[in-house]
Design a protein around this nucleic acid. Structure first.
Length: 370
RNA sequence: GGGUUCGUAGCCUAGCCUGGUAGGGCGAUGGUCUCCAAAACCAUCGAUCGUCGGUUCAAAUCCGAUCGGGCCCA
């Protein structure tokens, strides 16, 4: 694989991703400065994840805004495949979704695809994926969603509601569509093949336009959904995409829930966070102090800096100072890591407290079949 | 229902024909080096060879049964 090659699919992400190329490849639209201004005008705020290009691409977000300005509300939908514990990379689209809910005052549906992870992970039982679904739900709730306007859908629990919609969808998708989109082969089990219609179902759960914040690697699922929406008399879902969150081990690839070392979990203790960052976070520093002072570090490939940019340092001025100090060589990699460790642990202290409280709130968030 | 193929450490895999209780790669862990990380180098851990039984002095290896996965045909 040459330096500028990269792969982004729902099941595999690899290489150094060129997001401008990816936009062309996927046929999405870049979030333009005009669109940013428009969002700022409506919400009165430009979220740092938009400003910094963490959310960089979309499909028909402008139409969602057109309708909104005419007084037609949309709703939000995102989800998670519960194959393991929640890590901080998962929180990026959820946290952004929470901001959207707050600013636009809209309903939110969060789908936990316990069936799909059971189908796709040979070693996981349905009991396992249900357990992770519950664990993941706690992290989602802990971010502060409005219980009046937020519902968590668990596939095996809410199949009664999802199935009639999924049936509409399934009839319009044939085998060659799914094969081409997801790389299915003759080894693929039947559950996987049907599954995309279940992932589409929440898009049509309300008779309103839907906006889906999600990692760009998941876009292909909704390309299919967008194709069939008009065929079943529905509006195409709009999407807003975030970049892949790098693993601790470095650029090229996203943070994986299954690789313990390269992942910060939401349940990690302060000591674990410190150890993981210090021992594993890929740095953009130089070989030794002397060279670092002279040549300066490279924040653009430094995972610690990237985590601050993506999630943990919303203050632009502070981030800029860190960027410049690191680039000039004034700030050492170890010192940069110390800043990140403190930020993560401060965040997790609050998050873990909210996560505990979520155990008592979960019932009011679970979607009830009608 | 018929056929076929596979099952060896977390993952991939050699060995099976020609029996003598397993070898490699990746990963993991530790160390050197570095302000850290990475890279590089050094070292270490890790496998009752799917399960049960049979043959044999001796079975991952031969035989039987069984469980599990894949594919083809019906």
């Amino acid at each position: 694989m040459s330096a500028d090659d990269f792969i982004v699919t729902p099941w595999h992400v690899e290489g150094d991703i060129d997001y401008d190329k990816l936009i062309k490849q996927f046929g999405t639209e870049k979030i333009s400065s005009e669109l940013l201004e428009r969002i700022k005008g409506i919400t009165g705020q430009d979220h740092f994840m938009l400003r910094r290009g963490i959310f960089f691409s979309h499909r028909e977000l402008n139409i969602i805004l057109d309708e909104y300005e005419k007084g037609n509300k949309f709703f939000l939908y995102t989800g998670r495949g519960p194959s393991g514990h929640t890590h901080i990379g998962h929180l990026v689209p959820w946290m952004f979704a929470k901001w959207l809910q707050e600013k636009f005052d809209v309903n939110m549906y969060f789908q936990l695809t316990d069936d799909e992870k059971f189908y796709s992970k040979p070693n996981l039982t349905l009991e396992d994926t249900k357990k992770f679904a519950y664990e993941n739900a706690l992290d989602f709730i802990a971010l502060g969603f409005n219980p009046e306007k937020t519902k968590i859908i668990i596939n095996t629990r809410n199949i009664q509601t999802l199935y009639p919609i999924a049936a509409q969808v399934a009839k319009k998708i044939n085998f060659s569509n799914t094969k081409a989109t997801f790389g299915f082969t003759n080894e693929t089990n039947l559950g996987m093949i049907f599954y995309t219609s279940l992932q589409s179902a929440p898009c049509f759960i309300e008779d309103k336009p839907v906006l889906i914040p999600l990692g760009v690697d998941q876009d292909p699922h909704f390309r299919l959904t967008r194709d069939i929406a008009p065929k079943i008399g529905k509006q195409k879902p709009a999407l807003i995409h975030n970049i892949m969150i790098p693993s601790l081990e470095g650029p090229g690839g996203k943070m994986s829930a299954s690789d313990e070392k390269s992942t910060i979990y939401t349940t990690d203790s302060p000591a674990e966070v410190k150890k993981k960052i210090n021992k594993h976070a890929f740095s953009g520093g130089q070989l030794d102090i002397e060279q670092h002072r002279k040549l300066g570090g490279n924040p653009d490939i430094d995972v610690s800096y990237q985590y601050l940019r993506i999630f943990f340092e919303p203050n632009d001025d502070k981030l800029k100072t860190i960027y410049e100090d690191y680039k000039s060589g004034k700030l050492l990699s170890g010192e940069l890591k110390a800043i990140l460790i403190e930020k993560i642990n401060a965040f997790l202290a609050i998050h873990q407290e909210n996560r505990e409280k979520a155990k008592n709130q979960i019932d009011q968030f679970l979607f009830e079949n009608k």
